[in-house]
Simulated scan of single mutants.
Amino acid sequence: MSKKLREYGIIIGQLLTGTKNCITDVEGVQIGHVTLDEPLNDQGDYACTGVTAILPHTGNLFEQKVTAASYVLNGFGKTTGLVQVNELGVLEAPIMLTNTFSVPAVTQGTLQYMLETNEAIGQTTGTINIVVGECNDSNLNSIRHCAITPAHAMKAIHSATNDTIAEGAIGAGKGMVCFGYKGGIGSSSRIVVANEEISYTIGCLVLSNFGRKEDFLAERYSAKTEQHQDTVAPTDGSIIIVLATDAPLSSRQLQRVIKRCGIGLGRTGSHFSHGSGDIVIGFTTARTIPHKTEELFEARKQLREDHPVMNQLFAAAAEATEEAILNSLAQAKTTIGRNGHTVHAFQF
C-alpha cells in the first residue's frame, strides 16, 4: 500500500504541516478527481488519464471571486485563462487539470457547469474566464483518442470534497511520469505563525510529469538508487503547481509567494527543461470579491510587505511544493498503459 513521504520518516523543511498535510487544510478548498483506466480497443490503445478539479471555496465562484495570480517558470504549456488571471488578479471558476489534448473538452465541461450555476453569465453580465492546466500523459495514455469528455470535467467538480485527498496515479495524474517513475497528483501544507493569535495555512497541489531519472536528487532523501527500468522513453514533461492560502495577500504579493514554488521544484532536481511547461497558479481565500457592486471603493486588508511573516510564507511555498512532488511519487503505483507501456513506482 502506498504511503505518504512522512510515513517513510522523511521530513521536508522546518515548518509544521496542517492536520491533513494537503491543500484542503486551507479552509473551504475542495478537490475532485475523475480517473479513466480502461482499454479503448483491442489494438493496444488505452485510456490512462483523468481530470482534477480545485475549488477555492464552497460558494458561487463567479459571484464571489478570490484573489489570484499565476507565474510561468517555463512556458512550454497549453493552459487557458492565465492571461486574464494576471490582468485582473482574480479567479472566478474552478482550476482544472487534465492531459494536453483534453484542455478543450475540460474547458467546455467547466464552462457548462458554470453556465448552469450562473444564469447571468453571457446574458445580463459579462463572460467568464476558465482556467485549465495540462501535462502530456502520452507515454501511458492514448492521447490522440481524446477520451476525456466535458461530462468528466463536470463530474470532477461535482465530486469535489474537503477531505484528505487521494494522491498519485489518480485524476489528472493517472498517466503522468515524474523523473522516469510514476508521478501524478501530490499535495502538502504548511502552517505559518504570524503572532500568538494569528496563523496562516499554505496548501500545495501538484500535477507532476517532469524530469529524467538522472536529474532526480534521490540521495537528498536517502532513497534507494536502484530502481526498476521502465519500457517508455523519458521526455521533458511538465508540472502544474497550485498554491492555496488563507493569508491576506494582494495579487502582486501572491505572485511573489508562488514564485518560491520554483525553489521547491528545483530542490528535487528539476532545472525547468526546454520542453517542460512549469506553471504555478495561486489563490487566497482570505476574502471574496463580489462580481457586482455599486460601491466606488473597496476596502481590503493585506499583510505588510516587510513583516517577517512574508519570509515564512516564501519558505512555506517552497517546502510544501517540494513535499507535494515527493508525495506524488510516494503515493503513485506502478501503472500499465497503452501498448503495455509500464511506469514503475519509485521506492522510498
Rank of each mutant, 00 (worst) to 15 (best):
S2H: 07
K3D: 07
K4W: 09
I10Q: 06
I12W: 00
N21A: 07
I23D: 02
V26H: 02
V26S: 06
Q30P: 10
D37C: 14
D42C: 12
Q43L: 13
T49C: 12
T49M: 06
T49L: 07
T52E: 00
I54T: 05
L55P: 03
N60S: 15
L61N: 08
K65Q: 15
A68V: 11
L73P: 02
G77T: 08
G77I: 03
T79H: 00
G81D: 03
V83S: 14
Q84A: 14
Q84S: 14
G89K: 03
I95A: 03
M96N: 02
N99G: 10
V103C: 04
A105W: 01
T107I: 00
Y113N: 06
T117G: 10
G126S: 12
G126I: 08
N141R: 07
S142M: 10
P150E: 09
M154V: 14
S159A: 15
T164C: 13
I170G: 01
A172D: 05
K174T: 15
K174H: 09
G175P: 07
M176Q: 12
C178Q: 11
G180E: 04
G183W: 03
G184Q: 05
S188H: 01
I191M: 00
V192F: 03
V193K: 13
S199R: 15
I202E: 09
C204R: 02
V206F: 02
F216Q: 07
Y221D: 07
Q227F: 00
I241Q: 08
A247L: 06
L249G: 07
S250Q: 09
S251M: 10
Q255Y: 10
R260A: 12
I263D: 11
H274E: 14
S276W: 02
I279N: 02
I281N: 02
T284M: 04
T285E: 01
A286M: 02
T288W: 03
E294G: 15
F297R: 11
E305R: 01
A315G: 06
A317L: 05
T321R: 01
A332C: 12
K333L: 12
N339E: 14
V343T: 13
H344M: 03
F346Y: 12
